[in-house]
Amino acid sequence: MTETCPPEASQRIPMLVLGGWLGSGKTTLVNRLLAEAPGGERIVVFVNDIGEVDIDAGLIAARSGDTVELTNGCACCSIGDSLGAALRDQVLSPDPPDRIVIEASGVAEPDRVAAYGDRRRIRPDGIVVCVDATDVVRCAGNRLTGRLVHRQVAAADLLILTKCDLADDGGAAALAWCQGETEAPVVTSPVLRSEGGSWVDLVLGGMERLDAAEISHHEPPEPLDFPLDATLWSPSYPVAAEAVAAALAEVASSEPALLRAKGVFADGVVHLAAGRVTVDPRPDGADPTGQLVLIADFGWDRRRACFDLGRLTR
């Protein structure tokens, strides 16, 4: 990205573009940025949404902070909002943000998104792309998804390899693939847990910090000795947390491969861990998604599990 207006550079608002596949951990990362940004800094997030179902919805905290939802403008049947106009409105408002983050849609090319914004008022702050360690090699080889994945990765100034602890090799194969595709530094991360995460500083540090020399490549975490698979059960009807818990207990008892599950419902949060199903009160601010994320060994019968959950709760 070329800088065109250096004089008042310090007054320009940094704009970070966050790209990557749906389910790659973008939304989780945004929530971490909002939660852990240096005190008092106001971040406005533009979500360039195309109405995608977020498969991670059950695993992430409620979205907080200022968000501006945008629609994708390229459709015969919908003429969408203008990202340029939305950026202008925020930046020229009486109370402009300290930092802008654009969460690009899963099918966007993040470098094209990064081209928006008046450079006299906005300072490009890099493109961060999230990559799912459990899925990226498959996506890259798939004839439908491959080209887009390659272009997203090639556009990155910093790659974050997420869900390494869910990959059977701790993310080693995905890391090797990424390093073969891009010169950009790659940091690896477990499922973007809330503890730890020095890369939050890295992401917010901006372009000048994205010097490969400064980044200590995180070693992939210890590989787990089994591969994992995640799926989402989303009933189309309202269902009580207790009913989900009862059904989940029954499904877990007949499907030993099912390891973990979590879902936020209106009247409680359902967990499955270590073979035990529990229901906790729903924390304030955690929007009920009414969905259950299920994590299990590969090769489990997820259709059967989803079918049984439906059968037992209807």
Partner: peptide
């Protein structure tokens, strides 16, 4: 030149599933 996706081609079933169930 290349075409565009209006939804993630890998996740179209996820978009449809709630309506399919209904």
């Amino acid at each position: 030149h290349e075409g565009a996706w209006m939804a993630n081609p890998d996740r179209i079933a996820d978009h449809i599933r709630p309506s399919w169930e209904q």
